[in-house]
Design a protein around this nucleic acid. Structure first.
Lengths: 202, 202, 202, 202
DNA sequence: GATGAATGAGGATTCATTCAT
DNA sequence: TATGAATGAATCCTCATTCAT
């Protein structure tokens, strides 16, 4: 009896269905979500849904891809154009960006990929290339710029990007599994950043 | 060729079935694994499986619990009895312990909990109390000892245990999702430990 | 030969399925009837059946209720509006009504209730209230009217309604168990009515 | 965890098992009773049970037959040897015999036969010949004796035996289905007897 | 394009029966 | 004999997918 949350406008149908599916998957996971539920949420008939997506799996892929979007690209753009000092950029925009991830759709997608990823290598590849690799590269490039500018030490660890992501990932997982066990993820991430900066500052 | 049809091994059956189930779940996840498959892997009939586990869900819980046992307890014991300096203990036994996690059954259980946890709050609680909480407490206690002994600074970050786990968690997730994308998890974890020690050393 | 695979008859489906189920249950009883059989009899897929009835039990209830309808109510109406003398009404419409019961669906339902009733108290209550209690009350009221009109003696036995039903019930059971052992149920019922009337006539 | 109710004595095993099965069937009906339950009730292993009864069906037959026993034969004996007047015999021993039936194992067997009889024609035949036919014949013979002795009218109805059984049957069914709805079966049966006697007395 | 009634393969679970011990 | 672990056919029910309307 869930009210359809999405309005009918022919052109937006796929997006609406994808959004509804995202909500449903977020709530129950892929396997436990019935196509019927998605259709109802989208205010659309099952038949129509199958007009846009051949199978449930295809819908799944569309959902994952829909979340990637511009998020990372925008960060990369920022990295390239910012006039802040490396230190200030990291403590400012980058930190803020990272802190938002655990509560964002990305966390949901991570959960979906963990559960269903092993059966969808192509999807995983897509995600890796368009999100993870890009993100890591951006951070790497940014750190390199810092080194070039003499802001950071040369010796900086090659795993830096992963180390920066680590507390973010922990926060994501924590949020999925131990919802009710409190964890101040903002501080956690900030502390890590702090530690890393201390470590690599020139 | 003439395998005996009956084997009568009441004692070992639960363990055998649990082990088979672990393998099956590891491969396909809980939802996608058929009870029949587990039975076949265990070299047992479906019916017998239901003699030991009332439902598939119960089997799932048994699998999760079977992995938990002793692992953490052994570490805690070590923490309490070691004669190493705090620094050496962390760089030695603790680091080695942490580095083994991403390739161990624990990683599989984490994956299962991420996918199925939301529907099994009691199981999550069990896991939290017997593994996570214990582990975090052990690390906390150990750091406190270091402070008391004058090996570490007082100012040490309260999130320390989580920070130590962060690269481990990233490694676990990485291993699950991006199996083929290389990541030197050992170094990643070691670097983080290194960084943290530099940070808190007196 | 080319029966249409789809028929789309939302309106009639429940009735069709209920009717098929009645036949199947009549033949084999509830427990021994497979849902699949009912579906096949109804010319419908198993899945569709579950679209209309959540469980086999619910289908069972629907079957029982479908048989109850109006039968008794029509009799009661007759009782209230008849212009026949009490004696004539009993020897006419009432007797005829009673004589039809053993060969009617009611007999089947009785059988089902005997076998499954103990596990469906609510269904038994429903049946009691809508059929048995009503029927007994109608007969009681009718006899009382006869007394008021001076057609029957006051002394009339309080168990009268049950006594009237007794040979009907015997006939029903006989029909279920000893199908082939002849028993002239019409005469049996008529004789009892006769005997009772002799007994209570003023 | 039901305690075994029956002691072990080799020779009595079949009887003990049959008795346990009767109790189980009485409680749940044939279909809903698991062989395991019967074995447990009898304090015997499932394997042993199968040593005495080839199948669950065979056990069922044994149960039905075990209840028949001498009950009817004893009545017939009484009928033949009594020195009471026909009227007194009917109002005395016969009435008392009939009144006990609804609460006796016979009622259970009736229930079982109603539910399972259609699938066991041989069993039904056995029951008919050894119980029903005998009982009816005994009553018939007795009434005939009354006529011969001038105690009853010649005109007596041929269906008499069935009419006498009718309220007994109603009481049985009532007890099975409408356990909680009160019905004074003793009075019901006595009233019918009374009515019949008034009717046929010379 | 839309709809949702209809399909049917697939999967969890039960339980009568067997058989190694 | 006696046991109860082990088997597997049978059955209910779900849900992705199809298709007449």
């Amino acid at each position: 009896m869930t009210e359809p949350r999405y309005r009918r406008r022919k052109e937006d149908r796929p997006k609406e269905i994808t959004a509804a599916a995202f909500d449903a998957f977020a709530e129950k996971g892929f396997a436990a979500t019935r196509v019927d539920d998605v259709a109802k949420r989208a205010g659309v008939s099952k038949g129509l849904l199958y007009l846009y997506f051949k199978t449930k799996e295809e819908l799944f892929k569309a959902v994952v891809k829909s979340v990637v979007i511009r998020r990372v690209d925008r960060l990369i753009e920022n990295v390239e154009t910012t006039e802040l000092s490396s230190d200030n950029f990291i403590r400012g925009p980058l930190l803020s960006f990272l802190q938002k991830i655990p509560g964002s759709p990305v966390a949901i997608v991570i959960r979906l990929l963990i559960a269903e990823g092993p059966r969808h290598p192509d999807l995983v590849d897509y995600y890796y290339e368009n999100v993870v690799a890009k993100g890591l590269a951006a951070i790497s490039a940014f750190v390199k710029r810092g080194v070039d500018r003499g802001e950071f030490r040369q010796s900086s660890v090659s795993d830096l990007p992963h180390l920066i992501l680590a507390p973010v990932m922990l926060s994501i997982i924590w949020g999925i599994i131990f919802k009710d066990k409190q964890l101040d993820t903002d501080t956690l991430i900030a502390t890590q950043i702090d530690m890393i900066l201390t470590h690599i500052k020139a």
